[in-house]
Structures are given as structure tokens and as C-alpha cells.
């Protein structure tokens, strides 16, 4: 349904926040987390690759499919917080 090829986007942790607002999750009208806004000055804004409206399929290889909002956002927050990596990998789907 208008879904484009998933794209891997690597966001370096170049600011103190990731700087995205996310909506959606299992059992809501938006079953996969969707980027609602991008905050100026956050890592996502600075790296310039994420866009409002994109849907996040995976974070560091972890699928968000079937996860409720709270769990999906926790996965994203922990991926940004962990000191194991200085980046977060997002598998993104675009809709046209």
C-alpha cells in the first residue's frame, strides 16, 4: 500500500538528544511507530536523514513490529542511551 523499499539510516549520536517525536505502536491506528516531528538541534536533525512521516521498522536490528507504543519507544530510547554504540541504526519505510 504505497510502501517503498525499507532503507537503513545510521544516525550518529552527535547531540545530547535524539530529537524525534514518535507516535504509534501495536493496537493503535498507527500500528508501527511513525516519526511525528524532528526537533531542531537533536541528533536526528543534525544528521539530516530522517523525515517526518517515515515509519520505523527496526532499531539496531530489533523489529518494532507488534510492540506497543511504550515498548517501542523504550527500545528507541535505550538504543540512544547505550554507550556500546555511538550511532543508532534505523530501518525506515517511506510512504508515497
Amino acid at each position: 500500500v504505497g510502501i517503498m523499499e525499507p532503507t537503513l539510516v545510521r544516525v550518529p549520536k552527535c547531540a545530547s538528544t535524539l530529537g524525534i517525536a514518535v507516535e504509534g505502536g501495536a493496537n493503535t491506528r498507527q500500528p508501527l511507530p511513525r516519526i511525528a516531528t524532528i526537533q531542531k538541534g537533536g541528533s536526528a536533525h543534525i544528521s539530516g536523514q530522517l523525515r517526518v512521516g517515515q515509519v520505523i521498522l527496526e532499531v539496531n536490528g530489533v523489529s518494532l513490529k507488534g510492540m506497543e507504543h511504550r515498548d517501542a519507544t523504550r527500545v528507541i530510547a535505550e538504543a540512544f542511551k547505550t554507550k556500546d554504540k555511538d550511532y543508532v541504526d534505523f530501518l525506515i519505510a517511506e510512504f508515497n
Partner: peptide, 15 residues
């Protein structure tokens, strides 16, 4: 389709 319409909106979380 009807079932889809009854699903609640999601909250938004700033990360």
C-alpha cells in the same frame, strides 16, 4: 476496515 476505525489513536513520545 470497521475494526481499524475503532483502534485508538496513539500517544506521542519525544525521544
Amino acid at each position: 476496515r470497521e475494526k481499524r476505525l475503532t483502534l485508538p489513536p496513539s500517544e506521542i513520545t519525544l525521544l
